[in-house]
């Protein structure tokens, strides 16, 4: 029999997930505008793959398919993964990544609400470890590219690997600012010299910094809509900025300004959309601060001292491992326990 409360707020997992997707739209729009429509192909491919895999997984587990497909969580995973991958990567890369995200990271760990690791980041990590070459095929900003790919050309290239006649891959792709920075530093160039290269924009990368800004705005919307709290993004950004700042002060020629780190790669997407995944993140207010700060610091260390161009995914996964511990040790004081613990 039902017991009280007999009333409930109008909310659902689907509504939350839809708002998350909506918050990504401005970033995607600017992405298309500045880097071409290829990202739409990968987003669609990832979405379809995720929904198909989710349906199969839910069916195999004997759960009702409809409510679990309608919850929208698979779509969010798919979009976050697609936005983390190079937009002109081959189709199978997307499919393999989505498979690891939805089937391995999510359903093998118990499905919605039970997975330990952020599914999109597991997908990303598998791909960057297994297919490092394909993972560097980023679209060049249209303002710097020698040629533009239409939507159909992009789809053709993604699915068949065939470019329109006379077009070379070099004309449409380029290394990311983070990659460029890493390789140029290895060539003993100083930060000042490196940032004169055209791929570097005002703060981050040409074009990329605008996309990052839109993700930041989308994230602020999520905060205002009370889908996320400020703790994880703020701690993430602060952790990255302070760590980066300390390195930068110690040697400005070798360590680039912390603002650059905020404006490049997956930081804003990671801070507002990925690290805030409630299932795999810390839940207590203090825990969220530790969790976010940990991701920020690790992201910087992996980017700067590690072997991979971007560190967000590994930082998130490493901190995911810590979540149960963090939560257990950061339980807030309960009403009536604040003055003193009663003698037991």
């Amino acid at each position: 029999m039902l017991s009280s409360p007999y009333i409930a707020e109008q909310s659902s997992v689907s509504i939350i997930m839809l708002k998350v997707l909506a918050a990504l739209v401005p970033g995607i729009a600017v992405y298309v505008w500045l880097f071409g429509p290829a990202i739409l192909v990968t987003l669609t491919l990832a979405s379809v793959t995720a929904l198909v895999l989710e349906t199969i997984a839910v069916r195999l587990r004997g759960w009702p398919a409809k409510p679990f497909l309608m919850d929208g969580s698979a779509l969010v995973t798919a979009w976050l993964l697609a936005l983390s991958l190079p937009p002109i990567a081959p189709w199978w890369l997307i499919v393999v990544g989505t498979f690891f995200a939805i089937v391995v990271a999510k359903h093998l760990y118990g499905g919605l609400g039970n997975n330990l690791f952020n599914p999109a980041m597991v997908g990303y990590a598998v791909l960057i470890i297994s297919f490092p070459v394909q993972m560097t095929q980023w679209s060049a900003p249209l303002s710097l590219a020698g040629a533009h790919l239409s939507l159909l050309d992009s789809a053709q290239y993604i699915f068949t690997g065939i470019l329109p006649d006379g077009l070379k891959l070099d004309a449409i792709s380029s290394a990311t600012p983070l990659d460029t920075l890493r390789t140029q530093l290895q060539l003993e160039h100083t930060v000042r010299e490196i940032t004169r290269l055209p791929i570097f924009g005002n703060l981050g990368g040409t074009g990329g910094e605008a996309v990052v800004l839109m993700f930041l705005l989308g994230g602020l919307y999520l905060w205002l809509a009370r889908i996320i709290t400020w703790h994880i993004p703020a701690a993430f950004i602060a952790g990255l900025w302070i760590t980066g700042g300390l390195f930068h002060i110690s040697d400005p020629d070798r360590y680039i300004s912390p603002w650059f780190h905020l404006a490049t790669g997956g930081v804003m997407l990671g801070a507002f959309f990925i690290a805030t995944d409630p299932v795999t993140g810390a839940t207590t207010p203090r825990g969220k601060l530790i969790f976010g700060a940990g991701i920020g610091i690790l992201t910087y260390l992996i980017r700067t001292l590690g072997g991979y161009p971007d560190g967000v995914a590994f930082a998130v996964l490493l901190m995911n491992i810590m979540v149960p511990l963090i939560d257990a040790y950061t339980q807030p004081k309960v009403y009536g326990h604040k003055q003193k613990e009663p003698a037991e």
Partner: peptide, 23 residues
């Protein structure tokens, strides 16, 4: 029908006893 808990902690934010209802 109830769906799985996604640990969104809205309950914790609403709890007047400062509990962690999701836990």
């Amino acid at each position: 029908p109830a769906m799985p808990c996604i640990r969104c902690t809205r309950c914790a934010q609403a709890c007047p006893a400062d509990l962690q209802p999701q836990e």
